[in-house]
């Protein structure tokens, strides 16, 4: 057995593989062009560092199930978005459904967030959950996190229709819970 290749930082110039349209999973000329149904949502948030400064050169990727909770359906649940000068990311997608967990468990609707950046020698992985979702109470990943920190994974509605916000704090006060996957 050969161990997996070592990760290395994406560095500051990863934008050479940035295609800003990938942040809109529902784009008319994209892989989900023929997909119908589901609730259109916007996922946004700010990435900040240990000094509270915006991380303006991060690459955020999402991976999620379709509205029925499937990963093998027609919906292409992948997106990529670079953070802007304020550290903000913004995805347009469909709200995922509940996904089977291990055993007889059910996972609450969630979106995987991966953060790559200069200064990160490997990606940081976390999940975005939706506030008010009854299934959050029994979600196995949320249950594995100490209650005081669970909120760092739970997006809140904003004033804009269909928009949810989750800020990512890489270090320090209110540090996001990252997952060892």
């Amino acid at each position: 057995m050969t161990a997996a290749t070592a990760s290395q930082t994406a560095g500051p110039y990863w934008h050479l593989i940035d295609f800003p349209e990938w942040a809109d999973l529902l784009r008319a000329d994209g892989p989900n062009a023929g997909v119908t149904g589901g609730e259109r949502i916007v996922l946004t948030g700010r990435v900040t560092d240990g000094q509270g400064a915006p991380v303006a050169d991060a690459m955020v990727e999402i991976w999620q199930a379709d509205p029925e909770g499937r990963y093998d359906g027609a919906f292409h649940g992948f997106g990529r978005c670079g953070t802007d000068a304020d550290g903000m990311f913004r995805f347009v997608t469909l709200k995922p459904g509940p996904v089977p967990g291990r055993g007889n468990q059910t996972q609450a609707p969630h979106v995987v967030l991966s953060i790559f950046a200069r200064g990160l020698l490997k990606q940081l992985v976390t999940r975005l959950y939706f506030a008010g979702e009854a299934l959050n109470e029994n979600d196995p990943v949320l249950q594995a996190i100490e209650p005081a920190r669970r909120g760092t994974l739970i997006a809140r509605r904003t004033a804009a229709p269909g928009e949810w916000r989750l800020d990512i704090r890489l270090q320090g006060e209110g540090e996001t819970v990252f997952l060892d996957v």
Binding site: D49, G50, V99, R118, L120, Q171, V177, F178, D180
Partner: peptide, 19 residues
Amino acid sequence: STHHRHPKQAPVRVPHTLT
């Protein structure tokens, strides 16, 4: 660049699911 960007808390290990 890692100084202010690395989490201080250990990541939480989760068993792999369909996700």
